[in-house]
Design a protein around this nucleic acid. Sequence first.
RNA 1: CGCGGGGUGGAGCAAUUGGAAGCUCGCAAGGCUCAUAACCUUGAGGUUGCCGGUUCGAGUCCGGCCCCCGCAACCA
Length: 478
Amino acid sequence: MSRKYYITTPIYYVNDKPHIGHAYTTVAADVLARWHRHRGDEVFFLTGTDEHGAKVAESAVEAGQEPQEFVNEVAKLFRIAWKNLNIKYDNFIRTTSPEHHRAVGVFINKLKASNSIYEDKYEGLYCVGCEKFITEKELVEGKCPVHNKKPKKIKEKNYFFKLTDYIEQVKELIVSGKMKILPEERKKEVLGLFEQGMEDFSVSREKVKWGIPLPFDKKQNIYVWVEALQNYISGIGYGEPSEKFSKWWPADCHIMAKDILKFHAIYWPALLLAVGEPLPKEQFIHGFFTIDGKKMSKSLGNVINPNDLVNQYGSDATRYLLLSQFPFGQDGDVKKSLFDEKYNSDLANGLGNLVSRTANLMEKNDVGIDTAQQPISNDKVDIINKQIEHYRFDEALKGIYGIISQANKYLDEQAPWKHTPDDKEKTTIVLQNVSDWIKTIAELIYPFMPITSRRISQQFAGPSVKKEDGLFPRLSDK
RNA sequence: CGCGGGGUGGAGCAAUUGGAAGCUCGCAAGGCUCAUAACCUUGAGGUUGCCGGUUCGAGUCCGGCCCCCGCAACCA
């Protein structure tokens, strides 16, 4: 049965070039999207970029560009990175696009109409040099660290959202599991946040210039976070006359990293409740990387560019390496040396070599494919599919590797290379068994490694099989 | 006592409701030779952060302590 499946990544803030963290989230979402498509579901996969806010405006100034010009360039970098990683999204939503502006306008007006917005004063420390509010924590000896000046305590008019009106309802939906927060630890974390208490938050800014104007008070811009969350609906046609929005909403899954948990698990549902839209069904929060045991940061210079990985390993292998390292949902450490190791052991020695030796044996012994054979379905395949469905990508990949091992072992036991011409029938059975497994493996790896999957499927489509170039050339040891 | 996560053989991770500490890589020895110096078998290596408790039995429950990471109201 075909079902609709709407999955999203967060929209990435264009203040930063794409890095391995963005790639991780996006690849995971792409795997789920491909998995659902592959089993016949109707899928919409949304990603995009978050392009407003003071930081972006500052960066544009530094780059000597107009904000729009600046964000156009960075957004393009994301598109290129996703193309390199073979990400197949259905829409790339940008918050500076007309459709986003329109959707946000409609949404904010609805919020206003629902009496969830009120006017109040926002008080904070404001640095004139930075042209923005800064927090107590950022201060160094009571001064702005950038401009070495004391910030002024000022008040500005802001519009606030009555979060507190919806907090109990959101909490209940999370506790009852009507809106799933996964993994379980994150759910606990969110429930912990409720215990700490929540206050209404401001949805507009007077000082921040680069943004979407508030429809009912053009002197204010909508606070970037409030506006950014709406990408999930603007990306599927919210506020447009078409049927598109009602077809896809609510989202089946929001994927994100743990830093933005609160916005997604609490603020976003509350905003949706206020305007009477249904809530996302599921939100999955994954962990952070450290690189060689250290926090990834620009100042340490250890940020990994996904394009570099693709250049070195290819898109399929990069996707595999990202998701096979550690359980999705936990923090993990990324080691450059481990990438090489895993590439060689799993992909070159494992999958690549199995395909290579099998194809070679089939060609030499003139054994073809039994095209009547249906794809194998057994417990192992079922388990692996379940694991993908439950975001256990590392386990699923391990399971696939298990089938590869099994095939290798079987080949060694049967040793068809020792067969004489009289054993032709036996040889045929053995090699066709292995080729059936290989075809099954090709099916299973499709969401993770679509290109390799296709290559294998084509090579083993029959009637005859020929040896081809290796799928994953071994990296020379250094 | 702010909240949450984590500390398991050299590395990365697993262990349904407490019940013989597993997996992958790496390492060592042996086998095989169809294959990308690959594949197969066997082996070495852990008193599961520390201390105490409950139990016939705890990595798994309880108490205390140490260390690491993220969040802590606008920072995306």
